[in-house]
């Protein structure tokens, strides 16, 4: 029964099946959710950018300033200001989709390995494309070997850096996915404890209600904090990787 409940809440199920070139590109629940949240953001943010006298305006401005000053300029210096729209979009997308996932009867989009894998892939593409654009292809490949390394160790360091490139991307994806899904699994397990104890004995089931509800409330509050921190960490690490790829040593 727990497995059924977990499968219902955490996994995503396909609504419309469509197959393109043999790949399974069906429209799933999480995709509908991401599209709906994107349309909401596309409607809300330009309106907020035009209005100047609402209180929400200052809230969003505080976060945009935070992204611009503490993440983009701190990593890439003054010339990195043209990347601010990308990082703002990344930060706000992770934040809003994860926060909406805390509402009951909605799905956590970032709790899907494919979605976070897609976001990490965009980071991968951004880092490599910007590195090649700013430094040129040959210089970028040469930058994989840190300057000042003894020539004997150069091939080994080259391979290690290439592996590190992929590892950092995958770690980025798995970090966000695991943080988001762990909170939900723990809450579902705590609530399922009540049903397990009730199946054994009615009284013990009733006794388990207060500690179980209390623990799940605490884990929910902790998860909100973790959402903010993980959104910041994802954007910050992306900025660090981009700055390392753009700047020469």
């Amino acid at each position: 029964m727990i497995v059924d409940s977990l499968e219902h809440h955490i996994l995503d199920h396909a609504r419309f099946h469509l197959n393109i070139f043999g790949y399974n590109m069906s429209i799933t629940d999480h995709l509908i959710f991401i599209t709906a949240m994107s349309i909401l953001m596309l409607i809300a943010f330009p309106i907020i950018a035009r209005l100047k006298h609402w209180k929400i305006n200052s809230l969003i401005e505080v976060m945009v300033l935070f992204v611009r000053d503490d993440i983009v300029i701190a990593s890439m210096g003054k010339e990195g200001e043209k990347y601010t729209p990308y990082f703002c979009t990344l930060f706000f997308m992770i934040l809003t989709t994860s926060l909406v996932g805390m509402i009951p009867f909605s799905k956590t989009v970032t709790g899907n390995l494919s979605v976070t894998g897609g976001l990490a892939l965009t980071t991968f593409l951004l880092v490599n494309f910007m590195g090649i654009k700013e430094q040129g292809l040959i210089k970028y490949i040469k930058s994989f070997v840190p300057a000042g390394a003894p020539p004997l160790l150069a091939p080994l360091m080259f391979v290690l850096e290439i592996i590190g490139l992929f590892t950092k991307t995958i770690a980025l994806a798995i970090r966000l996915f695991a943080n988001m899904i762990a909170g939900h699994i723990v809450v579902i397990c705590f609530i399922s404890l009540i049903f397990i104890f009730t199946q054994m004995n009615l009284i013990s089931g009733l006794i388990t209600i207060p500690p179980s509800v209390g623990m799940s409330l605490f884990v929910n509050l902790l998860e909100i904090l973790i959402i903010f921190i993980q959104a910041y960490i994802f954007t910050f690490l992306t900025a660090i990787f981009t700055s390392m790829a753009i700047h020469e040593h």
Partner: peptide, 17 residues
């Protein structure tokens, strides 16, 4: 401190996965 804690926890979650 929060940044470093999140990075260390990321590795722990890798192992958990």
């Amino acid at each position: 401190m929060l940044i470093a804690a999140a990075l260390i926890e990321g590795l722990a979650f890798l192992a958990l996965i």
